[in-house]
Simulated assay, not measured.
Amino acid sequence: MSYAFAVAAVFLLFFALGVRRDRRRFGNAVLLGLAVTFFGVGLLAGIEDAPPGVAETVMICGLLVLGLGPVVLAGLLTANGVKMIRKEGRRPSNLLSLLAGLGMFGVMVLAVTAAATDSWALQVLVVTLLLVLGYVSFLFVCFVGYAFLYGRMRIRRDADYVVVLGSGLIGGRRVPPLLASRLDRGREVHERLAAYERPDGGAPVLVVSGGQGPDEEVPESHAMADYLVERGFPAGALVREDRSRTTEENMIFSKELMERDRPGSSCVIVTNNFHAFRAAILARRAGVDGQVVGSPTAAYFWPSATMREFAAVFLQYKVVNLGILGTLILLGALVWASR
């Protein structure tokens, strides 16, 4: 038990050092997840020393979570997936929660079948699947947990710019609710920064970042600027970045604008809350001195959007992650072949 707590303390120390070095690292999320995991192992190992009745209660709760938890989660994901299709259409990115829920049901059916038929091949397949899903699920929980913490960090007061990231337009020229949420949040952050006294006496500038897609009549940044100006935001405090087509380009081209006018400047980047942590990782990679904050998103949209963001981060480290998954699958194949 003491060993587990000691390992948890070591990972927690590395986590603290990682956060101090740069809050925008995915490694921080993994270190925090490992610290929590080993702390939990330590608690479970010491449960036998707990007062009478506590161990039995914990065991019953654990069995209920292990038995009913996956079924409930799969049902919720499936229901959310159906709602996403009804509200947002059948684009592949809107199907993630539905596919995840159905996939979980499929694995459960496969596990029951393997147990009922006593099939060696099916048992090896199920164990291999559970190992693969366990690894991916651990990283996903780390991602969600640390993204939650990152999104609640206090907004820096010394930023020179507020950068609002663009998204698609409705009808090729109108700002949709998702983007309007970002713009409203960006204006709020700009007003907060403008209220602070700055040593140089300058005022923060708001950058709207987004180029023109193939189905859009105007660049996203122009529609974003019009949205803000129509609602009373001063046009002189706006800068349009109208070349970017991806989040990576949002960062790169916005950085060029900021460095051109105020070399060495810092910024607060605004996007939706589900996108904030991945945007922070991309900002770090682009060399942008910026904190990312999120704007509210409809609850039904969050599960699929978060899965999409996690998948993108997962593939950013594809050499390590795909290597580990490949190793787990290879071990399963070797165990099956050894029979």
Rank of each mutant, 00 (worst) to 15 (best):
G40K: 02
F14A: 14
V208I: 01
A279H: 03
V292R: 01
V144M: 11
V218Q: 11
D215K: 12
D226Y: 00
A223N: 06
K318F: 10
P263H: 11
N273A: 11
F138R: 13
G106I: 04
A121L: 05
A100V: 06
V19Q: 11
V288K: 04
D118S: 02
V163E: 00
R198W: 04
G323Q: 11
G210S: 07
V175M: 04
T113A: 12
R192N: 10
R24F: 11
D49M: 10
W336M: 09
V144P: 09
P303V: 07
Y317W: 13
D49K: 13
S265H: 02
V292Q: 08
V127G: 08
R24D: 08
N94W: 07
H275V: 03
A115Q: 10
V319Q: 07
A35K: 02
L66K: 02
A299H: 09
Y317S: 12
Y300G: 12
V109S: 15
G213C: 03
S93F: 08
E48A: 15
L43I: 15
G290A: 15
T246W: 07
T128E: 02
G101I: 05
R152A: 03
V288C: 14
G75C: 02
V54F: 13
V41G: 13
D242A: 13
L31V: 04
R308M: 03
M104V: 13
I85K: 11
A8M: 01
D49Q: 15
L102S: 12
T117F: 05
V126N: 06
D22W: 00
L73Q: 04
S304K: 07
E248W: 12
L331P: 02
V335H: 09
A311M: 12
D118F: 02
E56H: 07
G290K: 08
A299Y: 06
R339C: 00
G287H: 12
D49S: 15
S2F: 07
A280T: 01
V313Y: 03
W302Q: 14
D160V: 05
A35N: 03
P176W: 00
P70W: 01
L44K: 10
A35G: 06
R187V: 15
G46S: 14
F233L: 08
S97N: 11
L228I: 07
A50K: 02
A280R: 01
M108D: 08
G186C: 12
